[in-house]
């Protein structure tokens, strides 16, 4: 079984702050991490490989420094990694990213592809299903449990808005995973050593059968027009007087809108 996991290096958004004067992100000192959902995808893939054997390759598309994310994956115990990186890929939106990743995956060969549910920088959750469409394979999104991987099929539980579905698919298939699936392991000491020594293989545009019109900024149908700070509601009113009076005022409000 050939397993591919797609991971993305993202800024740790819990550390991102906004500069209220310029309405822009303060990125200084914000660490880059593996997208948290992707760690669950790696963990799931490791468990499948432990049970079923096969080869597990982790890929990421991004700038040269995304190599760090791949080293972390090696430390967790994956077999192989690829850094998909080329100037020509810069400025990709989800369409161009999915297209490019699908070309790389096509080259590598696959039975099972795992992605995180979404990346915490863009929060789009689109790349997984779009990769599946480009490869012309089925996908199942928001997997919270893998029930069985059999001969040529998988059966999983997918999270819906107010229930969950049990879904079966033929293999090859792409799955996107949520946090409930597992607890990602920490890197072992041996893994960390291996990660340090590993030579990271790169794939550039030349290594892919990709059409230039479909990659990078040029291949991206969406454009970011501008970014701005989230607007705030302006009707702030702090109640005053004794606590008793404040509560009475609140109760009057509740009455006036017929809540009481």
């Amino acid at each position: 079984m050939n397993i591919i996991v797609c991971i993305k290096q993202v800024p740790d958004t819990s550390e991102v702050k906004i500069n209220p004067l310029t309405n822009t992100l303060i990125r200084e000192g914000v660490p880059s991490i593996i997208n948290p959902y992707d760690l669950h995808a790696i963990e799931a893939a490791l468990q499948i490989r432990e049970k079923k054997g096969g080869k597990l390759t982790v890929i990421t598309m991004g700038p040269p420094q995304a190599e760090d994310a791949l080293r972390e994956a090696i430390a967790m115990g994956v077999d192989d990694v690829r850094l998909i990186s080329d100037k020509a890929f810069a400025g990709s939106d989800t369409w161009a990213t999915s297209y490019t990743l699908s070309r790389a995956i096509e080259k590598l060969g696959y039975d099972l592809i795992l992605c995180g549910k979404q990346a915490i920088d863009g929060d789009t959750a689109q790349v997984g299903p779009e990769i599946a469409e480009f490869l012309d394979i089925p996908h199942i999104a928001y997997i919270k449990k893998i029930e069985e991987i059999g001969d040529g099929f998988v059966r999983v539980q997918r999270l819906m808005d107010d229930s969950y579905d049990v879904v079966e698919s033929t293999i090859p298939v792409l799955l996107t995973v949520v946090k409930e699936l597992n607890v990602p392991r920490l890197p072992s000491l041996r893994g960390k050593m291996a990660a340090k020594k590993a030579v990271i293989t790169k794939m550039t545009l030349n290594d892919l059968d990709a059409e230039e019109d479909n990659i990078g900024l040029r291949g991206s149908p969406t454009k970011v027009k501008n970014i701005f700070a989230p607007p705030m509601k302006g009707d702030r009113k702090i109640l005053e007087g004794t606590l008793e009076n404040q509560i009475n005022e609140l109760v009057e409000v509740l009455k006036s809108i017929k809540c009481l």
């Binding site: 958004t13 906004i18 309405n23 992100l25 920088d121 969406t222 027009k225 501008n226 970014i227 607007p231």
Partner: peptide, 12 residues
């Protein structure tokens, strides 16, 4: 985007 820290206007 970015965990709700900023808003973005996107065009197609």
């Amino acid at each position: 985007a970015f965990g709700g820290n900023i808003m973005a206007t996107i065009l197609c």
